[in-house]
Design a protein around this nucleic acid. Sequence first.
DNA 1: AAATCACTTCAACACTCGTTGAATTGAAAT
DNA 2: ATTTCAATTCAACGAGTGTTGAAGTGATTT
Lengths: 111, 111
Amino acid sequence: MDDRIAAGRFAALAHPTRLSVFRRLMQAGPDGLAAGVLAEALDVAPNNLSAHLNTMSQAGLIEARREGRSRIYVVRMETTAATVGFLIEDCCQGHPDICDVVTRQPEPVGI
Amino acid sequence: MDDRIAAGRFAALAHPTRLSVFRRLMQAGPDGLAAGVLAEALDVAPNNLSAHLNTMSQAGLIEARREGRSRIYVVRMETTAATVGFLIEDCCQGHPDICDVVTRQPEPVGI
DNA sequence: AAATCACTTCAACACTCGTTGAATTGAAAT
DNA sequence: ATTTCAATTCAACGAGTGTTGAAGTGATTT
C-alpha cells in the first residue's frame, strides 16, 4: 500500500457526512444499504450524497451493486482492513504491549 | 466521540506527508521523534512540516514535549485507538465473523 | 551578550473541495 | 409509449487547504 492511496482513503473518511455513511454501511454489513435509504436516514440531499458515495467508491472503501431501481452500497472489508493495518503497522518498535489499545479492537457483539 | 471530531482526525491523516509522519511516530512509539529528524527523514521543509504537525496535534492524534532545543512528537495512543474503534463500531449487525478482517489486526512483531 | 540552532508563525498565493440547483440516465409501473 | 421513481451528472460559486518565503521565538553554546 502506498502513502498516497492510504491518504486518499482517509480523505474519503474525513468528512462528517461520509464518515456517518461509512459507519452505517459498516453496521449494515454485506447486506448494504440503498443510496435512498442513506439519504433519508442522514438527511442529505440525494445529489450531494451521490457525490460522497462516488468519492468513497473511487477511494476503494465501498462498492455498489444494482438492485431494481436502487443502488446498494457495501463496505469493502479487505481494503478497509488493509488501510487500518497500514496506519498502525510496525508500531512501537516491536513492543506491542504499549500500543495494545490500538491493535486490539473491542470484541463485537455476540462473542 | 462525535462524527465531526472523528472526521477531523481522519482529515489529519488524509495527507501523504502527514500520514507518513504519523506512521513513523507510530513505529517510534513512546520515545517519539524530533521535528527536525522527521523533516530530514521525510525530506519536507521545516515550516511545512511544522504546519502539518500542528494540524495533527490539534486533531488530538499526536502531542509534543520539549527536550532541549528539540520538540519531540509522540502518538496519542488512546485517541488513535478510539478513532479506529469508532470507525468500525457495531460492525455487521453482530456477525463479527464477516468483518473479522477488519477487527483483528495482524499481530505485531515479538508475540 | 552575541551567535547559532531548532522550530514555529505569518501573509499571500494557487488550488482543491463541498454544496447547490438544474438537467440527465436508468429502471419499473401504468 | 408515457409517467414516475431512484439516483447520478453537470456547471458554478464560495470556502477551506497546502505551499512558499520571510520574519520571529526559544534554547544552547561560546
